[in-house]
Write a protein that binds this DNA or RNA. Structure first.
Lengths: 162, 162
DNA sequence: TAGAACCTTCACGTGGACGACAATGTTGGT
DNA sequence: ACCAACATTGTCGTCCACGTGAAGGTTCTA
């Protein structure tokens, strides 16, 4: 029953500086991400200072990962986190007061987004896997050559020791 | 014994325009790639016109694939095709007249490059696979929600039909 | 009430990946 | 010998992505 109690309750908030320190992303970049729709606008203090949640921090890490490790562009990442947002909203907003058709449409929309993403990811996986196999094949070829050479060297060694 | 016979022999050559047409890459880009070290300088006609081999054409396709499908940058791709070059050289230049230690070193060098590449690729595969699983999990969650909603709608329907 | 931390806005920078000429040279066919 | 088609190098421009910097003002906290 306190489903949205812990959503709103005493979860810690951080100012931008701290978030920057913790995530290794500059303040400037955090604002930039917000501007680009990668981060939902965080809460603000009365004076206008941004207040990030733990969740936001996690998200920033996620973004970095997608970017650095997987080479997605920011706009691709935007699509991903947007779907993520919808998803969270859907789960959080368990309001049966909404019209059912509306909620249905919502679900389909999210499904669509997810499907598109999955497509992209699966294609990438497929191609990368292929590439990996090629690389492995090459490696074994080279390794073989190398052992041949090593053997030849041993031979030489043996001969010279006579 | 005609190992390098077919390497040098009557393999077809193409001018840049034809290559551009066949690969869908502009002439400008081909020259650009060459400049950046992505393509080995091709042979030239007496007048200086570039003459590409079938092999080069293949390579260009490879590059495009790495770029478009896998999102590698040109400089990453450069590293990859450089290793590829070494590999081909090694295979082509089957000259036992070379000093063995030299050839050994060569092999190790290539192995190093390949290992590095493989590392990158494997990391990417790993992360992408993880991401894929997450996406799938989300999809099933949403799909479930959707069927719940559909059921609810049916109920409503049934009720209204009384 | 000082000084550190934050705010917005506007502009600027950088690197990657080409595109667009321009002026000149080459090739192949008639 | 000539012309159209094709290439050459070189320079400059462009467009996007991904930020960065700095100015000038506001808020927080000791």
């Amino acid at each position: 029953m306190n489903a949205n109690a812990d959503a709103e309750a005493a979860t810690a908030r951080f100012q931008i500086g701290e978030v920057a320190d913790r995530t290794g992303v500059t303040q400037r970049t955090l604002r930039f991400y917000e501007e680009k729709g990668l981060l939902r606008p965080p809460e603000r203090m009365d004076g206008g200072f941004r207040l990030y949640s733990e969740n936001d921090v996690t998200r920033i890490g996620y973004i970095k990962q997608l970017q650095d490790l997987l080479g997605f562009t920011l706009s691709e990442i935007k699509d991903m986190v947007e779907a993520e947002d919808l998803l969270q909203q859907m789960s959080a907003t368990r309001r049966p007061d909404r019209e059912l058709p509306e909620r249905l449409q919502r679900s389909e929309q999210i499904l669509g987004a997810l499907t598109k993403q999955l497509d992209v990811v699966e294609h990438k996986v497929e191609h990368l896997t292929l590439l990996r196999e090629e690389l492995r094949a090459k490696m074994t070829r080279v390794t073989q050559r190398r052992t041949e050479i090593l053997n030849a060297l041993e031979q030489e060694q043996a001969v010279s020791e006579l």
